[in-house]
Design a protein around this nucleic acid. Structure first.
Lengths: 153, 153
DNA sequence: GGTGAAAGAATGGAAGC
DNA sequence: GCTTCCATTCTTTCACC
């Protein structure tokens, strides 16, 4: 797995990170290489596991899901993280789960329609999980930046 | 802006959220509608602002960016959030910035190559910003779930 | 507002450089 | 390992339902 990436690879990633649906021919034009090259590079990076997929960016508030909430979770025993994470996966409103070191043991992100919906999920689903000692919540008021790393090297 | 979404719209979003690069013809086949319908629906949702774009999912660790860190930031005055967020945008390693209520004023996510790189960015760039009173950091050990909401309604 | 077909464009190999 | 070429497949529009 000794695939070295060059500037062209990084530029492809930079472009597609912002606009995953841009046709490869257009990417090729921007970088002044042939479409076949883009194709081969992208396939290589997918095989390497660098590119794991592509997803839509959605503005949930446009369909009435107005709340984005982060929860910092304390476990009663740190070793329970695996089981608690498995339980969290089952909650539909949870979109990201991170096992972390530092103040919290687990950090999650969730979307809900409104504060009532949030409270319901929080009380009936999150707090019902065994092994959770405490939770701190942070409501996102504004999301400022969505981007990927600009790789200069 | 009275665009009601139906089951087909939600299914399109569900499919493309996982696989943004899937051809519309294939989406059409899955949902048993014509390609033209998919096209029209996606365009409608883009015009509504629901779909804001598409991005690649990258596994940064594959190119040696092994650390994902969350920082919870306390401001010396809450009103400074705008200016501090603008300064944070300028840091290349920062990929997400949320203005939050709760314990922290601002919550960010960043990627770095290793702990030395992290320390350097943290000390020289984050702490150098005016208006930041304190920071708590959480290092992500494992990312468990990347998905979008399954809209049932 | 959906369908299906048609023209144009992009994809994804293969062969050669 | 990149490029060009080509057959296949996809996109995108539009007249019709």
């Amino acid at each position: 797995m000794k695939n070295k990436l060059d500037q062209i690879d990084f530029k492809i990633i930079s472009i597609l990170s912002d606009e995953a649906q841009m046709p490869y021919t257009e990417v090729a034009k921007k970088l002044i290489v042939s479409p076949g090259t883009i194709h081969a590079r992208v396939r290589k990076m997918k095989e390497m596991g660098l590119i794991t997929g592509a997803s839509l960016n959605l503005d949930y508030s446009k369909i009435g899901w107005k709340l984005t909430v982060f929860l910092g979770i304390y476990l009663s025993k740190s070793s329970l993280y695996k089981q608690v994470m498995d339980d969290l996966v089952k909650i539909n409103e949870v979109v990201k789960i991170h096992h972390t070191t530092g103040k919290f043991d687990i950090f999650i992100k969730m979307h809900t329609r409104d504060s009532m919906h949030y409270r319901e999920v929080y009380q009936n689903q999150v707090l019902a999980i065994n092994g959770i000692k405490g939770v701190e919540s942070f409501i996102s008021v504004e999301e400022k930046l969505i981007r990927h790393i600009q790789f200069d090297s």
